[in-house]
Design a protein around this nucleic acid. Structure first.
Lengths: 252, 252
DNA sequence: CACGCTTAGTGTATATTGTACACAATTTAC
DNA sequence: GTAAATTGTGTACAATATACACTAAGCGTG
C-alpha cells in the first residue's frame, strides 16, 4: 500500500521506569548513557521495539536484560511522541513501569547493566530526553495504583514487617501515615499472613514478620472486592441488616 | 545512524473514541469503513500521525475533521501495538478519547464524516481491528475519570437539569444512583450555578436548569481540592477544630 | 376547572469509615 | 539493671455514605 510506505518513517521504542525500594526510600534504576545524544547523562533503560515484537514483550525484554528478572509487575503508562523529543529523528516511545524487589536484583553481565545504578526518586536530577516527564508520569501512576491495589508488596522482600510496609507507602505517597490507623487498615484487608516469626539482630524489640498472601488476593479479586486504601470492605458484603423500621418521615 | 534506519519500519496512527450523550445513554461515534481491511465494518475514527505532528495534535486533527469541534476534552489512554493487529503491516496506534456535546456536533462535509454514526456504547457490535478492546479501555478510563473529576459536564449541553446529569452518571457508571444522595453530593461540590430558569414544554413539573461553573472548578482545583464522587471535601479544609481534650486512655 | 399524570424536589436516621491520639511491652547494648 | 530503641495496641469523635417516601408543580383531558 502506498499510504503505508509513505508513513513508514518513524522509530519506536519502549522505556521502562523500574522502581525498587531500599533503605526506606523509593528508587529508580537509571543508566548512564555511553553514546550520543546525551552522552554521559542518566536516562531510563529502553530500546527499540523489534518488528515482530509486541510492545509488552519489548518492555519485558528490556527489563530482563537489565535485571535478569521475569514475571514481575509491569504496566504500560503513557506514550510520548513529541516531534522533537529525540534529536536524531522521530522516535515515539511507550513508557512502562515495573516494580521489583531490589533484594532479588542481581547485576547482569550485559554491557547495559554495568552502567546501571539505583537513584532515589526524590533526588533524580536532569535526565536525557524527556525522561523526567516519563518518570513523573510513572511515579504518578504508581501513587494512584498503590491506593487502589495492593501493589506495594511487589517492592518488598517476601518477609517484611508492618513498619517496613508503612515506610514504603509513605515513600510512594510522599506523606506520613498514622501507625495505628495504617495497621488497622492493612490488616482488615486480610491479605497478610502472620508468619509468627520475628526479626533477628536488631537492637530493640523485634517486629513480627508478615507475608503477602497472593492467593487470598486473587480470590478476593475474583469476588469483586476492591482494595482502596481509603475503603476497606467489610467481611460479609452479602447480608445487609434489614434495619429497624421507623415511621415514615416528612421532609419540610 | 544505521540503527535508526533499521528500525524505521513501522507506521503509527491515532484512534479516537469520541463519546457523546443523548437520549439518556452514552454514545460513541463510529465510522463505516469504505475500504479494506474490514470493509463495511464499523470502526473508530483514526489516521496516521504525520511526520511533523505531535500525537496530541494528530488526535485533535482527527477529531476536528470529523466533528468540526476544537477545544474539547481529549486524553490519551493507551497504546495498542500487537504485531498482527493490522493485517497489512505493523501499525501501532495510540488511543485517545474525547468527550463532546452532541448538541454542538454538526455533520462535517468531509468524506469520512459522512460515514459516521452515533452508536450506543452498550450495544456496540463487532468492530474492525482491535477496536473493541480500544473502546473498552477508553470506556473504563472514562468510568474511572468521572469519579475523580467533574468531566460529566463535557458531555451535556450548557444548561441541564440535575436529573439529566444523574442519568449521565448512571449511563457512564452503569448503575442506578439514589436521587437525593446524588443531588446532595453534586450540590455540595459547589460547581453548579442555579440559573433560576426552568425547563419549558414538558408535560410535568419543569426542572430547574443549572450550568457548570468552570471558573469555580479551576479555582478549587488550584486550591488542591479533589472531586471524588465518594468524597466531597468539606468547605473549610483549613481550620480543623481543636477538639475537646480527653484524658489519655489506655489500650487493652 | 377538577382531577389525574408525570416528574421535581426535599430531610433525617443510621451505618460505615476516617482520624486523632499515648503508653506499656520487648529486646539489645552497655 | 538500666537506658535506648522500636513494636504493638484501643477508643472517642468527626465525616461521609446510605437507605428511604412524600409533597410540589405543571400539563393534559373531560
Amino acid at each position: 500500500m502506498n499510504e503505508f510506505n509513505e508513513y513508514f518513517k518513524s522509530a519506536f521504542t519502549v522505556d521502562n521506569v523500574i522502581f525498587g525500594f531500599d533503605e526506606g526510600d523509593l528508587k529508580v534504576l537509571l543508566i548512564k548513557r555511553g553514546e550520543e545524544p546525551y552522552h554521559g547523562k542518566w536516562g531510563l533503560p529502553g530500546y527499540f521495539v523489534y518488528p515482530n515484537e509486541d510492545l509488552d514483550t519489548a518492555a519485558k525484554r528490556v527489563l530482563e536484560e537489565l535485571t535478569g528478572l521475569r514475571n514481575v509487575f509491569l504496566e504500560q503508562v503513557k506514550t510520548f511522541g513529541t516531534v522533537n523529543r529525540h534529536p536524531f529523528g522521530r522516535v515515539i516511545t511507550v513508557a512502562y513501569f515495573s516494580l521489583i524487589k531490589i533484594s532479588h536484583y542481581t547485576l547482569q553481565p550485559s554491557s547495559i547493566a554495568r552502567k546501571a545504578k539505583w537513584h532515589s526518586v526524590a533526588e533524580v536530577e536532569d535526565l536525557a530526553f524527556d525522561h523526567n516527564d516519563i518518570l513523573n508520569a510513572c511515579f504518578n501512576r504508581l501513587k494512584w495504583l498503590v491506593r487502589s491495589r495492593p501493589v506495594g508488596f511487589e517492592l518488598l522482600p517476601p518477609k517484611f514487617t508492618l513498619t517496613e510496609l508503612q515506610h514504603l507507602y509513605e515513600a510512594i505517597l510522599e506523606t506520613k501515615l498514622d501507625k495505628r490507623n495504617f495497621r488497622k487498615k492493612i490488616l482488615t484487608m486480610d491479605l497478610l499472613v502472620d508468619l509468627e516469626e520475628t526479626q533477628e539482630g536488631v537492637a530493640h524489640r523485634p517486629a513480627r514478620l508478615y507475608q503477602f498472601d497472593r492467593n487470598r488476593y486473587e480470590q478476593l479479586l475474583a469476588e469483586g472486592l476492591s482494595f482502596e486504601l481509603k475503603e476497606s470492605k467489610r467481611k460479609e458484603p452479602t447480608e445487609r441488616k434489614p434495619r429497624t423500621r421507623r415511621k415514615p418521615q416528612q421532609m419540610a
